[in-house]
Design a protein around this nucleic acid. Sequence first.
DNA 1: GTGAAAGCGCTAACAC
DNA 2: GTGTTAGCGCTTTCAC
Lengths: 345, 345
Amino acid sequence: MAVTIKQVAAAAGVSRGTVDRVLHNRGGVKPDVEKHIRKTADKMGYFPNRAGKILAGRKQPLTIGYVLPSIGNLFFEDVKTGIHTAEREMKDFGVNITIKEVRGFDVKDHIGAINAMMEENPSALCISSIDLPEIRKCVNKIVKKGTPVVAINNDLSNTKRLCYVGSDYIVSGRTAAGLMLLCRSRKKENVLIATGSLNVKGHNERIQGFNEVFRERNVQYHLEDLFETQDDNEIAYFKAKKMLESHPDVDWVYITAAGVQGVCRAIEERTQGKEIRVICFDTNQYVRDYVERGIIDYVICQEPKEQGYQSVKKLFDYFVDGAKGHVDDYITKAVIKINENMNFT
Amino acid sequence: MAVTIKQVAAAAGVSRGTVDRVLHNRGGVKPDVEKHIRKTADKMGYFPNRAGKILAGRKQPLTIGYVLPSIGNLFFEDVKTGIHTAEREMKDFGVNITIKEVRGFDVKDHIGAINAMMEENPSALCISSIDLPEIRKCVNKIVKKGTPVVAINNDLSNTKRLCYVGSDYIVSGRTAAGLMLLCRSRKKENVLIATGSLNVKGHNERIQGFNEVFRERNVQYHLEDLFETQDDNEIAYFKAKKMLESHPDVDWVYITAAGVQGVCRAIEERTQGKEIRVICFDTNQYVRDYVERGIIDYVICQEPKEQGYQSVKKLFDYFVDGAKGHVDDYITKAVIKINENMNFT
DNA sequence: GTGAAAGCGCTAACAC
DNA sequence: GTGTTAGCGCTTTCAC
């Protein structure tokens, strides 16, 4: 049986209250007594019991405020599912969650939503935003004031955020290249790249990782063209349509972000040209449908549910275990989905 | 704030003890009082608080006994890692774990280990064994005596086991076929199948799923030959060597079970013949090395760590939430690994 | 500065 | 049959 605070107190010849004061650095204890208590606690291998902590801590529940650009973005449905699974599991442990949803990636909207969230005085913040100076500044201010912030799905570089929970975009880009090369056509493939925005780091990293692998393997592909979908299916559709008309020799379409349905619609409507292979990222009902119909060959996913779940868990552990020190990032896997393993979890 | 047992007692005009008796069907309560209590509890939306339960339940910790055929089987290293992660997380909630390790799949050895485990009177059992009548009988007996049993990695059909935590072997076999077909060579591929044993259900299902996909898609492959590795690398090596000599036209080697290193060694040592593609299951340090060197193209994994972790969690939840009713299986994903996404979680 | 005590929600032993 | 009470291990308040 593990050693309790009571046993430490008894062994040190003081009361539980005093031990607690020392262990939580709450001061008001004579230095020599403190040293003595610390020593005996260490010697006995004392480690606070989480069940006890949680129960006692129920008086001040842990509220986590989320800000997500999830309106009109199916990707975040799974993230939210993960968040709510965690909420259900940890509700009895004092975890409460509020989500503020935003449409798109307008900096002002994001800052507005974050500030609105902060009005509610959450114990912690968890956001998926854009890696720009304004947001970074905003986040750093919040952290400085004492509210820990977790970055989910999109990291915020050089901020004091507690940790990042999300995918490694370079690795997912590399994986796309790997899949393509494993098809071993042995000819120079004509690739059309549909990216979300050249201003979004993650999208660029997916291209960077992709190129890295070709370079490392000394294989070349021919870049037919590259266009931005702005994560919008309509824009994606019209641009892709034009692109495919002017580039009849495309072998592969590599879609690094949203707008997948738009691109696929354009591919499906084509009346001539070679057979086209498609690699994209992240599933939803429409993407799954295109995979089933053989339009999309590979989808590289990033465990969205896990991102939601783990972001809650990270914060819960952080608070329960005493909000001390460094917290590791949680990097989700690059999960390859094809028709055969897509619908069976 | 959630409603507590105290509030229910007050509302029903009885003591907490009585409410507890009713809620746990421990009898000794007048029928009409019981009905009244149940009704008020329902009306108030009472749900027992897990934190309170866990703390109170610490007096009788939950001990889970594992029996795993893990000696000399690298696959189970990750399973054990997952088990120990869960143990660490839930130790403070009263979870204790003991593992008995066995070498191989001898029925008598397994029964012996299970009985030895039962000697220690665990609160629950978790085993990875063979789906044979003797084992099934043994498990059913244990369940009947009141100890819940979870089947991990290998299901035990038609037993009263609480649930199964592991992969869907059909789906993983289908995934192998899907990957092969995505390479679209457009010719009839010559396939050599290296299976573990024709007596092991999971191995057969991986072949069955593989064949299903070809049939459904109206594509044929040519089965060059099929041999059993007995999950042994030496046997695998010698048999594969011979097979490859007598079948110089093999395009793909499909390895459904262990013995991967043996087969790969034979492939690597070949001095003539066409380039061979390899699909296998489950990683370990040696398999990863073969992937890096380009001998193995695809590895289909089954989240072994998750299997370990979730098996503990299933039992923990079952006990905390009152050991009532049905528990869902936990089916792990068929995770495709290639060189580029293998080493990054 | 330090000790004592109440209470988080639940279970189980003991009274009546 | 039913109520009371003593913990589980911890935090926090209040008293000295």
